[in-house]
């Protein structure tokens, strides 16, 4: 099977939760809607660890993502690495859903030459899923070309060097990859994975929240609000109900 098919054979897969409203045609409401129970379609679907990849099915690309993520957020005395905290599973679930599809984006052509400069930020017709596909392939090809090995197999300090080059624009992976923007996309997504609610597959054991002291999905701080300037040491809570 060609790589593109293997990686992106799941285009159009049903995405859980996450869309607002039902599309049963225009609805005329006369009187207050009597069904007050929470709309099931509005509940986020929990990402189950070890459930298998849906988009990042190619070993090389998954290893590359894990290697990048673990340099961006490494394991150290402050806590687990990004991949240990579930950020690869997080990214896979995000790429399989509306985010990966670019479901919210206006992607009409043409994309004009001056668009990025005018908007002062890079513009894309490609979806995030497509950007990961081309970006990861280009990163690995770069490592093979310059270092003769897969990115994931390079020494950490060499990986950092390449990542710094991507960040500051001195490394250009390929003509069809906005390398700086791809770095920023990965940095944003790994932060999301590390600091989002664990229901989305990352931030395992709320490691990200424990690192900075964020108490999570709490609903009521009225007991604490008057204790200004005091360290509260609140145990974080997630949207995932406790057993």
């Amino acid at each position: 099977m060609k790589r593109r098919e293997a990686l992106f054979s799941l285009v159009g897969i049903a995405t859980a939760g996450a869309t607002i409203g039902r599309s049963a045609g225009a609805v005329t409401l006369e009187g207050y809607p009597t069904d007050m129970a929470v709309d099931k379609a509005f509940l986020p679907a929990s990402v189950v660890p070890g459930g298998g990849m849906r988009v990042l099915t190619n070993d090389t690309q998954r290893r590359t993502v894990a290697a990048v993520f673990d340099r961006l957020i490494p394991q150290d005395e402050l806590g687990p690495s990004a991949s240990q905290a579930g950020c690869v599973e997080f990214l896979d679930a995000q790429l399989a859903g509306p985010f990966g599809e670019g479901a919210a984006l206006y992607r009409e052509t043409p994309k004009m030459a001056g668009e990025d400069a005018l908007m002062q930020t890079p513009q894309f017709i490609a979806t995030p899923r497509e950007r990961y596909e081309t970006g990861l392939a280009a990163l690995d090809a770069y490592a093979q070309r310059i270092d003769g090995a897969a990115f994931a197999d390079l020494q950490p300090n060499r990986q950092d060097e390449i990542l710094r080059g991507m960040e500051d624009g001195s490394v250009k992976l390929a003509d069809d990859v906005n390398t700086k923007a791809f770095f920023e996309l990965m940095l944003q997504n790994v932060r999301e994975g590390y600091f989002a609610d664990p229901i989305y597959g990352g931030n395992r054991d709320m490691a990200g929240w424990k690192l900075i002291g964020f108490p999570g999905a709490r609903y009521d701080y009225r007991l604490y609000a008057d204790r200004t300037g005091e360290k509260l040491d609140l145990e974080p809570v997630s949207l995932i109900p406790r057993d």
């Binding site: 409203g21 409401l29 809607p33 007050m36 929470v38 509005f42 919210a104 999301e192 989002a196």
Partner: peptide, 23 residues
Amino acid sequence: PWMDTSTHTPPAVDPDELRWGIR
């Protein structure tokens, strides 16, 4: 679509930065 507190943003789904704040 119609949207309301109890049906769409009760405390069980509301405090979620990724979904509402970021996405």
